[in-house]
């Protein structure tokens, strides 16, 4: 029988019919946030008290550890069964998930899991609010002009802190992927084509609209990759970022601007 009660992420219970009156600003409790895939990014990050989602951190670390030279990295799909198995493992084991090469030897399965994670987010990494501002400037303003950079920044400042940090972490990684483009063939333009559809979602339900926007989404992500330092330097974004940060723990995030390289284990 279905429960008559609604349970919030923090464990707060209310009658289902009263639940819409419950404010949705609680501090989530890990035992009520079961799955990683398909769960709200901010909720997962708060519940697990990590700066960015564990799936993102672990997959990126693993990919960098294995090397970024594989041709078509992030373009070629992984093995379907492996992707499903990794996804289930993450939902079950969280930060203890093992995704080492001895267990899953196809690097494309790891890249596919990362893309799948972003695609399943209920609120896209680049939220609808930020999307509108960013796509507007891609349509209206001169490519990579000062005006455009300012507007993209403005869009990014609308992101919730956990989204912002995750995006910054991801873009720093993708820039390292493009550094190997001579071997992996994935320059910022190509990487943006395959990645943009996982990070941005057209707010209009019309599929034609979504198709038409695809090229602007691609240009937006390419610009973010190429202009990464201008867009994400701490100096210029601190103010916006602090204004957005609601919990002090986010200030303690340490994801360096200097495109960090992970320690090789």
């Amino acid at each position: 029988m279905q429960s008559l009660f609604f349970t919030a992420d923090c464990g707060f219970e209310a009658h289902k019919k009263c639940s819409e009156k419950v404010p949705n600003d609680c501090l989530p409790d890990i035992k009520f946030v079961k799955n990683l895939f398909g769960a709200d990014l901010t909720t997962v990050v708060k519940a697990r008290n990590t700066p960015i989602p564990v799936v993102v951190e672990k997959c990126i670390k693993e990919i960098e550890h294995r090397g970024l030279e594989v041709e078509g990295l992030y373009r070629i799909a992984g093995l379907h069964d492996e992707v499903e198995s990794i996804r289930m493992a993450f939902d079950k084991d969280g930060e203890n998930t093992v995704i080492s090469e001895s267990k899953y030897d196809d690097i494309n399965s790891i890249t596919s899991v990362l893309k799948l994670y972003f695609r399943l987010l209920p609120i896209p990494l680049i939220t609808f609010e930020a999307y509108r501002i960013i796509i507007d400037t891609m349509k209206q303003d001169e490519p990579r002009s000062r005006t455009q950079i300012i507007k993209i920044k403005e869009g990014l400042s609308k992101l919730p802190p956990a989204h912002y940090q995750t995006l910054r972490f991801l873009l720093a990684h993708l820039n390292r992927v493009t550094e190997q483009k001579a071997t992996n063939m994935m320059g910022s333009d190509n990487l943006a084509i395959v990645f943009a559809p996982t990070l941005m979602r057209c707010p209009e339900p019309d599929p034609m609209m979504s198709l038409m926007n695809a090229q602007f989404e691609q240009k937006a992500l390419e610009t973010m990759l190429v202009k990464f330092r201008d867009l994400f330097s701490r100096m210029s974004t601190t103010q916006n970022f602090e204004a957005n940060a609601k919990r002090p723990s986010f200030d303690a995030l340490r994801i360096s601007d200097q495109t960090p390289h992970f320690d090789k284990v």
């Binding site: 799909a77 799948l116 695609r119 084509i193 395959v194 559809p197 996982t198 979602r201 198709l211």
Partner: peptide, 9 residues
């Protein structure tokens, strides 16, 4: 495009 997001089209 082979990308997963466009599959629904």
């Amino acid at each position: 495009a082979g990308q997963e997001r466009f599959r629904s089209l």
